[in-house]
């Protein structure tokens, strides 16, 4: 089960790999990382439908923002689940994300317990 994580902060990769060490080792979770919206779209487009089961993306990134990327993903792959993660938990970002078709909305610093539950559901489905 492949999950794509998008964030312009590279240390996010280390953080996720360590947080989900058990899931990776024991439950067949595979994490893929992209450091910009553009890179994420390239990864998704290598196969159609994408090999990725779900996307977790930062909003605030240079170049294409997470919300822009969300719009593009939803127009190309309407079935793909996308969750947004933002340092700004304001209602503006939240409503924009949800009305553009995001599945969930997490604020930074990420509460990894709720994130683990979400990923657990994906793994079981």
């Amino acid at each position: 089960m492949k999950i794509l994580v998008v964030d312009d902060e590279r240390d996010v990769e280390d953080l996720f790999r360590q947080k989900f060490r058990k899931e990776i080792r024991n439950e067949g979770l595979e994490l893929v990382f992209a450091f910009s919206g553009k890179e994420a779209l390239e990864i998704l487009e290598t196969t159609n439908p994408p090999q990725v089961a779900s996307v977790f993306s930062d909003i605030n990134m240079p170049g294409m923002s997470g919300l822009e990327m969300l719009g593009i993903i939803k127009s190309r792959f309407p079935q793909l689940q996308v969750n947004m993660i933002s340092a700004y938990g304001d209602t503006d970002n939240y409503t924009r994300a949800m009305s553009s078709g995001a599945k969930g909305f997490f604020t930074k610093p990420v509460d990894f317990e709720s994130l683990r539950r979400e990923i657990g559901e994906i793994l079981r489905s």
Binding site: E9, Q18, F112
Partner: peptide, 21 residues
């Protein structure tokens, strides 16, 4: 604010991870 928020998040996350470990 944003530029401080990001490193602070990492400090929080990595220190939590540390105590888990």
């Amino acid at each position: 604010a944003h530029e401080i928020q990001n490193p602070l998040n990492f400090v929080t996350n990595f220190s939590e991870l540390g105590s888990d470990m």
